[in-house]
Computed example of a mutant assay.
Amino acid sequence: MTENSSGPRTGSGTIPDAEPLAAATDLAAALRELIESSVTTTVAAAEVRAAAELVRQATERLAVARRPTSQLPALDDPARGRRVFNPVSGVASALAPPLLIRREDGGVVAEVTLGVAYEGPPSYVHGGMSALFMDQMLGSAAGAAGLWGMTAHLELDYRGPLPLETKLLLRARVAENEGRKSVITGTIALADDPGRVLVEARGIFVMPRPEKVQAYFGAITDASGRHTPPRRPGDATSVDERD
């Protein structure tokens, strides 16, 4: 199997090789631990510099073979909405907590505990992270309802700060749909107090016209170099269907 191989084909898309996916997921988990340690460590400066050199050595090993931004990762499956490097829900992204988004009560729901790497005000989550997570949740709610689109408008009301190292509950559902436009709402609350909303979001998602889809994604290819424009413009990853 070459490094650009996409794995075996099925009627619904591509199934990635288990070992590359497991390796990418393991690397992401290790990097998340590194990031969290990097913002909480109190070791001496010499130790920090030594760690930085080790990180640079690891980066050199990974950088010897890279894909262009116009090429989808071999581990992705656009047909099913699987984006393993998505910065919110991607299991292989060190930036992602990651969120595991699932269907529930006519919408989607996720739980997450955020560490100090996501800090804004001391001991609380950065407000921009709330916007990032809500954008993903709203897009996933659209995808779960069979409504594909891209974020045209997103607004948030911050009713209270989100504490770090505390399990949070995120919800989203489609409120309205007409033609190419959908209105989707979402909330963030403490998992232990789901009735008290701390962040409330409302987004408008619009399905681009065909000429816009071509302009945005006409150069996108899969890992083998084959032209692969997304069937559903947007970045709503697949919703976990397990009970």
Score class of each variant (00 low, 15 high):
residue 24 A to S: 04
residue 158 Y to D: 05
residue 59 T to M: 12
residue 97 P to K: 04
residue 153 H to M: 12
residue 50 A to M: 09
residue 236 A to C: 03
residue 189 A to C: 08
residue 104 E to C: 09
residue 49 R to F: 11
residue 138 L to M: 11
residue 4 N to P: 07
residue 123 S to W: 13
residue 81 G to Q: 05
residue 80 R to S: 14
residue 213 V to N: 09
residue 79 A to I: 05
residue 162 L to M: 03
residue 192 D to K: 08
residue 71 Q to D: 06
residue 108 V to L: 02
residue 134 M to H: 06
residue 115 G to C: 01
residue 129 M to F: 15
residue 51 A to T: 10
residue 158 Y to T: 00
residue 95 L to H: 09
residue 78 P to E: 03
residue 223 A to Y: 01
residue 30 A to Q: 08
residue 40 T to N: 05
residue 121 P to T: 05
residue 61 R to H: 12
residue 153 H to L: 11
residue 5 S to W: 13
residue 23 A to N: 12
residue 148 W to I: 11
residue 150 M to H: 02
residue 7 G to T: 04
residue 79 A to P: 07
residue 94 A to C: 08
residue 17 D to M: 09
residue 169 L to A: 02
residue 145 A to G: 08
residue 95 L to S: 09
residue 123 S to I: 11
residue 2 T to W: 09
residue 44 A to K: 11
residue 231 R to H: 15
residue 230 P to A: 14
residue 85 F to W: 11
residue 177 N to F: 10
residue 189 A to P: 00
residue 4 N to S: 11
residue 18 A to H: 15
residue 190 L to S: 00
residue 137 M to K: 02
residue 239 V to L: 04
residue 174 V to L: 05
residue 124 Y to D: 12
residue 88 V to N: 12
residue 90 G to R: 01
residue 15 I to Q: 10
residue 182 S to T: 07
residue 114 L to P: 00
residue 234 G to V: 00
residue 205 F to Y: 14
residue 155 E to C: 06
residue 32 R to L: 00
residue 84 V to Q: 03
residue 66 R to T: 13
residue 13 G to K: 03
